[in-house]
């Protein structure tokens, strides 16, 4: 799989897929999509990069170890559950922050942060599995 064409295209493809995964993640609140499926798209992007340029390149690009990414996602998801405690509401009750930025209405909410947490858990866990499988192959 180590052809010149593939190696040249792979970084662009990865960047495009990562962008698309974020789009799918944010769109998931009201339409098909969400953290899980977005995370899987991001993992496919990393897997393609790994096949083309080697696992070491992916690990460098990720900076953090994939398992730490998953763990921080879990922490973010737990944190998104907590704000309703301070409003005397049950756990996981959604809290909204709506404002206008440059004439664009923006709605931030705790479910969105929960979804980002899910996204990170999926990216971290599955990338970790994919990378170790690819590493074995190259041995």
């Amino acid at each position: 799989m180590n052809t010149v064409i593939f190696r040249t295209v792979a970084p662009f493809l990865t960047a495009l897929m990562l962008l698309f995964s974020v789009f799918v993640l944010l769109r998931g609140h009201n339409e098909p999509g969400g953290g899980f499926i977005g995370g899987l798209i991001a993992v496919s992007a990393f897997a393609i990069l790994g096949i083309a340029c080697g696992v070491a390149a992916v690990r460098r690009a990720l900076v953090m170890h994939p398992m730490s990414v998953a763990a921080s996602g879990l922490l973010l998801a737990v944190a998104s559950v907590l704000p309703s405690l301070f409003k005397s509401q049950a756990a996981m009750t959604s809290q909204w922050l709506e404002f206008t930025l440059f004439d664009t209405p923006i709605a931030l909410s705790t479910p969105m942060f929960f979804d980002i947490g899910v996204y990170l858990v999926v990216v971290g866990a599955i990338t970790s599995i994919a990378l170790s499988l690819e590493e074995r192959e190259s041995d």
């Binding site: 398992m67 763990a71 879990l74 922490l75 737990v78 559950v81 405690l85 005397s88 049950a90």
Partner: peptide, 23 residues
């Protein structure tokens, strides 16, 4: 919701935090 009722979900949340931190 009374703050004391949050104790119901606290064990589960705490375990998740523990799992993530030790990871």
């Amino acid at each position: 919701t009374a703050a004391a009722d949050w104790l119901l979900v606290a064990p589960v949340l705490l375990c998740m935090v523990g799992g993530a931190t030790t990871l």
